[in-house]
C-alpha cells in the first residue's frame, strides 16, 4: 500500500514534466475548428504524417515564406504525398495576424495557399499546448502520433526572401528522412520569426 502511494506521489511529480511537448514522445492530442467550421482532432489522423505551421499573415517572417510562394510550394508538395498540413493561427483578437474565418479564406485564395485546413486558435489553447513560440514555428507528427520535429522552417533565420534559395528546409528534410525510415538528422532547432501574438 505504502509503495503504491509512493508511486502515485512520484507520478504526480513527474506528470507536469510530461505535459510539455518533446520530440520522440507522443504529440499531445487536440481538437480545433478550421476556417470552414469543421472540427479536427489529432487522434483522427493517426496513420498519417501531420505538419503544424504557426501563422500570422502580418509577420515579416511569414510574409517571407508566403510572398515568395515557398510555404504554398511546401504545402502542395507534402499534401500531395498524403501529409496532413494544418496552418494554425493563435493571434488573439486585436493583435497582428488575427483574422475571422472569412478573412482567412479570402487570404488562402489570394495567396494560393494549400494547407489541409487552417485551425483558428484565437484563445491560444493549441499554441500553448505545443508551446509555439514564433511565426512560423513548425511541428511534425509521424503516423504513430509521435513528435518528430519541433523548430524553424529552415536554417536561415532572416526575414529576407533572398535567403530561401540557399537554405536547408528542415521540414522537407525531416519528412524525407522519416518516410525513408531513417532518423531525423535535425529533430529540433530554434524557431525563428515574430513572437506568437497570444492573448495577454
Amino acid at each position: 500500500m505504502k509503495r503504491k502511494l509512493t508511486l502515485a506521489l512520484l507520478l504526480l511529480l513527474v506528470l507536469p514534466a510530461l505535459a510539455s511537448v518533446r520530440v520522440g514522445e507522443a504529440a499531445p492530442n487536440f481538437t480545433a475548428t478550421d476556417s470552414y467550421g469543421h472540427q479536427h482532432s489529432l487522434a483522427q489522423y493517426k496513420g498519417k504524417y501531420v505538419v503544424l505551421e504557426w501563422h500570422n499573415q502580418g509577420c515579416p517572417y511569414t510574409k517571407k515564406h508566403y510572398d515568395s510562394g515557398n510555404m504554398q510550394k511546401l504545402q502542395k508538395l507534402w499534401t500531395s504525398k498524403g501529409v496532413v498540413w494544418f496552418t494554425v493561427i493563435s493571434s488573439a483578437p486585436g493583435t497582428q495576424g488575427y483574422v475571422t474565418a472569412t478573412q482567412e479564406n479570402e487570404y488562402l485564395k489570394r495567396m494560393g495557399a494549400a494547407p489541409t485546413a487552417v485551425l483558428l486558435d484565437p484563445r491560444g489553447d493549441l499554441g500553448h499546448l505545443y508551446e509555439a513560440k514564433t511565426t512560423p514555428h513548425m511541428f511534425i507528427i509521424n503516423p504513430r502520433g509521435e513528435l518528430i520535429y519541433d523548430g524553424a522552417i529552415d536554417d536561415k533565420s532572416t526575414s529576407d526572401p533572398a535567403d530561401i534559395a540557399g537554405a536547408t528546409n528542415y521540414v522537407t528534410a525531416a519528412l524525407e528522412q522519416s518516410m525513408a525510415g531513417s532518423a531525423v538528422a535535425v529533430p529540433t532547432s530554434r524557431p525563428y520569426g515574430c513572437s506568437v501574438k497570444y492573448a495577454k
Binding site: G58, C59, P60, T95, Q96, S159, D160, C194
Partner: peptide, 12 residues
C-alpha cells in the same frame, strides 16, 4: 544595412 525594429509587431 538591414535590421528589424519591433514593438508589438516587427518591421524589417
Amino acid at each position: 544595412l538591414r535590421w528589424l525594429a519591433c514593438h508589438d509587431v516587427c518591421i524589417p
